[in-house]
């Protein structure tokens, strides 16, 4: 790893997060894993080399597996207390707490909490790799913080996921460096990809997205640490990759949980096809 910084949470325990806060966090984590996993799974059989077919399938498997954990937690929390988000009255869903599948396949676009970054189309392989790196850089540092929260169910999932995501970040960093500092063409493609995704990176560490780390018993500095670690790690990798971090302003307008691009509707139409077409069926 390119010396990814360790989190340094102060152990000031503010208060236990509410069920709604856990629910929201689980959706942010789970939806990002689900949507990005869904997107990269499309490379299976189409990647530039056989080893990349295998690697993309592997990462997609990890992310969708993590989505199962996070969305499972969201449904569990929601089922425990009515304080969490109210169960939507969806045709075809059995009564009782929502399962990970209910949350994945029977929610509307505005109910998803993934970053816009995750739903931008795969584009060429440079786009896919750069999007992955920018996401992994956030995912790794976020999980590092969450794996130290006193909130046990969150800490357990984060701890498990961190092992996988440590490898994801290692891999995507190596590829960004290798291709940035590769041929003229690979350099140009990677710089183009960085410029393309840069505006969407604003969401990654912003508490306005719905996860206020200050509330997570991690001390006031956790949110600041997340952003600082994200920036520092990005800078180290981009220097080695000989890529220039854009000066272009990020897309802050309309920044609030549930902000999406037009792409999400298509991703969900594809993913949710069978559950929507056959309400209540088991598969």
């Amino acid at each position: 790893m390119e010396g990814a910084g360790a989190a340094n949470p102060q152990s000031i325990n503010h208060r236990e997060p509410s069920d709604r806060e856990i629910f929201n966090l689980a959706l942010v984590m789970g939806d990002n894993c689900l949507i990005l996993g869904q997107q990269i799974s499309q490379w299976a059989g189409h990647a530039p080399i056989l080893e990349e077919d295998i690697a993309q399938a592997n990462i997609a498997l990890d992310l969708i597996g993590q989505a199962q954990y996070w969305l499972g937690l969201a449904g569990e929390i929601e089922g425990l207390k009515s304080e969490a988000a109210p169960a939507s009255n969806v045709k075809g869903r059995s009564a009782g707490p929502r399962s990970a599948d209910d949350l994945a396949f029977l929610r509307e676009p505005h109910e998803f909490r993934n970053f816009r970054l995750a739903e931008i189309p795969n584009g060429d392989y440079a786009h896919t790799l750069m999007r992955q790196f920018l996401f992994d850089n956030w995912h790794f540092h976020m999980l590092q913080i969450l794996s130290q929260t006193p909130c046990m169910p969150v800490r357990d999932i984060a701890g498990k996921a961190l092992k996988e995501v440590t490898y994801h970040l290692q891999r995507s960093s190596d590829l960004v460096i290798g291709l940035g500092d590769g041929s003229d063409e690979s350099h140009q493609r990677m710089q183009g990809a960085l410029d393309h995704f840069w505006p969407y990176t604003c969401e990654l560490c912003d508490p306005r997205w719905g996860v206020d780390l200050e509330l997570w018993g991690l001390g006031d500095s956790a949110a600041l640490n997340l952003k600082a670690n994200w920036d520092a790690y990005l800078a180290r990798v981009m220097i080695k990759a000989t890529l220039v971090i854009p000066e272009r302003a990020p897309l802050v307008a309309g920044l609030r949980p549930g902000t999406h691009t037009e792409h999400l509707g298509y991703i969900l139409a594809d993913m949710q096809l069978l559950q929507r077409a056959h309400p209540g069926a088991s598969w």
Binding site: A57, G65, Q68, D270, L274
Partner: peptide, 25 residues
């Protein structure tokens, strides 16, 4: 691979992805 994105449950999706990955392996 044509049906990974449309697998009807998360578990079926994971199993299908793993299968396609096995084929590459």
């Amino acid at each position: 691979g044509n049906w990974i994105s449309r697998a009807p449950t998360l578990q079926r999706k994971v199993i299908l992805l793993a299968k396609v990955q096995d084929e590459a392996g």
